Amino acid sequence: MKTRLNDLNERRKERNRTRIRTAAHGRARLSVHRTSRYIYAQVIDDTKGVTVAAASSLEAGLRGSLKTGADTKAASEVGKLIAERAKAAGITEVIFDRGAYLFHGRIKALADAAREAGLSF
């Protein structure tokens, strides 16, 4: 059962994805998903329909060093990790897909860390 708020979030997400697809010009998409406990990021090649790189605060290497997977420190660590993995896969330019989330807090921390680690968007 969908509520009105869920409908609005879905519309916002689809609106953002449509704009991203038109502006991408062949670049990969850095998609971000957050929950109340974790944050996830993946680099997706939409032309082939495959995930090139993925990282999350659930990974064993990050869980031991983080207090929680749901703060800006965790998001910045995931941003660094996804940038390293994307660069290892040969991708340096991406387009940022924030989904239905506003660009502040954890989403912004992940984006800033990915930029500092070498991804350009």
Results as ranks from 00 to 15, higher is better:
Gly61Pro: 04
Arg98Ile: 03
Asp46Thr: 12
Lys80Ser: 14
Gly64Trp: 04
Gly69Ser: 11
Val94Asp: 07
Gln42Lys: 05
Lys87Asn: 12
Val32Cys: 07
Glu59Leu: 07
Ala28Gly: 01
Ala75Phe: 07
Tyr40Gly: 02
Gly90Thr: 08
Glu84Trp: 03
Ala70Phe: 00
Lys73Val: 10
Ser57Pro: 03
Glu59Pro: 02
Arg85Asn: 06
Ala55Cys: 13
Lys48Cys: 06
Arg27Met: 08
His33Tyr: 15
Leu81Asp: 15
Ala70Ser: 14
Ile39Trp: 00
Lys73Trp: 04
Thr72Leu: 07
Asp45Cys: 10
Tyr40Pro: 01
Gln42Tyr: 12
Ser36His: 10
Val43Trp: 06
Ile82Arg: 10
Ala70Gly: 01
Arg27Lys: 12
Arg98Tyr: 11
Val43Leu: 15
Leu66Cys: 10
Leu30Lys: 06
Arg29Phe: 14
Arg34Ala: 09
Val43Gln: 09
Lys67Val: 10
Gly61Tyr: 05
Ile91Val: 15
Ala88Pro: 04
Lys67His: 08
Glu84Leu: 08
Gly90Gln: 08
Gly99Pro: 08
Ala60Ser: 12
Glu59Met: 14
Glu59Asn: 04
Glu93Tyr: 05
Arg63Met: 06
Arg85Ser: 11
Leu81Ile: 04
Thr92Phe: 09
Ala28Thr: 12
Ala53Leu: 00
Ala75Asp: 15
Ala53Val: 02
Ser31Arg: 11
His33Thr: 05
Ser57Ala: 03
Glu77Gln: 08
Lys73Ile: 06
Ser57Trp: 05
Glu59Gly: 05
Asp71Tyr: 06
Tyr38Thr: 00
Val43Asp: 00
Ala54Asn: 06
Ala54Met: 11
Ile39Ala: 01
Ala75Thr: 04
Ile82Met: 06
Ile39Tyr: 03
His33Val: 04
Ser76Cys: 08
Gly69Pro: 01
Thr92Cys: 09
Ser57Phe: 02
Glu77Met: 11
Ile91Phe: 13
Glu77Leu: 12
Ala89Ile: 03
Gly64Glu: 15
Ala83Tyr: 06
Asp97Gly: 12
Ser31Gly: 11
Gly99Thr: 08
Arg98Trp: 12
Leu66Trp: 10
Gly49Ile: 10
Ala74Phe: 02
